[in-house]
Amino acid sequence: MQQLIEFVGNHYWLAGAWVVLFFAILFGFISANMSPIKEIGTHDATLLINKNDAVVVDIRPAAEFKKGHILDAKQLKAEQVKNADFGTLEKYRDKPIIVVCAMGMTAKRTAGQMLKAGFSQVKVLKGGMNTWLGANLPVSK
């Protein structure tokens, strides 16, 4: 304990950085667990698609969507996502929805918009299409 106090006294900037890093990691874990938007892996996504008839919503640009997308995925154009226009998905309001982007980062924002719009079972594919392709899962062109 004496060595820790001496270290902090001699290297207060480094000790402060460790404290900030600890709380940032702690905040990340807590916010991820408390968030209504859950990230799911490829295994859970395939289970949702096959057993619960989940709808895959792809928010990537049209050119990327045409290169390859998850089977039966519905594409939302960038302007629809920007304006939170989910009218084309109204019939899927009560079904599980998996939002997919290229790397899993922008899909969280869209999933949040969908939750606010009244879609009850929205999830995000962790890692996006890169993870799906990395797992050698089927795509449609």
Results as ranks from 00 to 15, higher is better:
64 E>D: 15
74 K>D: 09
9 G>Q: 11
96 P>Q: 12
26 L>I: 09
101 C>M: 07
102 A>N: 11
116 K>H: 14
62 A>C: 01
66 K>L: 09
110 T>V: 06
64 E>F: 10
19 V>F: 08
100 V>F: 05
89 L>N: 03
19 V>M: 12
88 T>V: 08
89 L>M: 03
106 T>S: 06
49 I>C: 08
128 G>E: 08
8 V>R: 07
111 A>G: 06
39 E>K: 03
34 M>G: 00
4 L>E: 04
21 L>Y: 05
42 T>V: 15
35 S>D: 11
56 V>N: 02
104 G>K: 01
108 K>T: 07
89 L>F: 06
77 K>T: 02
112 G>W: 12
50 N>F: 04
11 H>Y: 13
18 W>Q: 01
21 L>M: 13
110 T>K: 02
68 G>V: 10
76 L>D: 00
61 P>W: 12
130 N>G: 11
50 N>L: 06
104 G>T: 14
95 K>C: 07
60 R>L: 06
33 N>K: 14
23 F>I: 05
48 L>G: 06
57 V>Q: 05
109 R>P: 00
27 F>L: 05
14 L>D: 12
91 K>V: 14
33 N>A: 10
47 L>T: 02
136 N>E: 14
92 Y>W: 12
23 F>R: 05
61 P>N: 15
121 Q>K: 11
26 L>P: 03
45 A>M: 14
24 A>C: 08
115 L>F: 09
56 V>F: 07
119 F>V: 01
101 C>L: 01
97 I>F: 02
14 L>K: 11
126 K>D: 15
34 M>W: 13
6 E>K: 15
121 Q>Y: 03
107 A>T: 14
37 I>Q: 05
78 A>V: 01
